Simulated scan of single mutants.
Amino acid sequence: MRKPRKNAAVTLVVALLAVIGFAVPITGAAPAEAATCTYKTLKYYPGSAISKVRYGQINVKFKLCGSNPDNWTASTSSWTNGTGDNLGIFIKRAEIDETSQTSGVKKWLFEGFLQSCTPRVGWPCAQSWGITIKYHVDKSRTGQPILWPGTPTVNAVGVAVFRTP
């Protein structure tokens, strides 16, 4: 019985494609950037300084890629929890803005606002409070970015900002 012969032309084309780099990778590779990025999420909980109840959560997320400050970004997310909703203390705004950038250093300012409003309805509102946090990122001796979070400040008596690792 005769053995089937391989198609020499197909074998030659596949070999040439592999040599010049057009072969399909067998495993999916992550982008080169992913290997050099550091991701940090800092969680803050505004609440009562007296009873320690928390009104919601604010997340400040950093993506620090490489040693170039142009590749360092920050974003926020926030929500009011059931306690805040029932007490009428709402997280109305949470945002972070870049304040400066120099060679190897980048700074941001987080600003968040809480309001005391009619419980569960969310309006009308009688009082507002502000939260600010400064952030500073610079490079280590090896060129990797290091995040330096500041201490949260609140412009209201009786309101605190708690951190959970």
Rank of each mutant, 00 (worst) to 15 (best):
K106Q: 02
T83G: 04
W129H: 09
S75C: 07
T102E: 14
G88C: 08
G66T: 01
K134E: 10
S128T: 13
R93P: 02
D85H: 11
L109M: 11
A94Q: 03
I96G: 04
D70F: 08
G88W: 00
A74T: 05
K107G: 06
D97N: 15
D138G: 10
W129Q: 05
N71H: 12
P124I: 03
E98W: 04
K92S: 12
W129D: 06
P119V: 03
L109W: 04
N81H: 09
E95H: 10
V105H: 10
T76W: 01
S103A: 15
G130W: 05
S116P: 00
F90L: 10
T118Y: 07
T118D: 11
P69M: 02
S100A: 14
E111C: 01
R141I: 12
K139R: 15
G122C: 06
N71V: 04
L109Y: 02
K107W: 05
N81I: 08
F110I: 07
P69H: 04
C65R: 03
H136F: 13
L64W: 03
G143N: 05
V137W: 03
Q101F: 03
L87H: 01
T118K: 09
F110A: 01
S100M: 07
L114R: 00
F113T: 12
W72Q: 05
F90M: 07
I91C: 01
P119M: 05
G143H: 04
S116I: 09
G143E: 10
K106I: 09
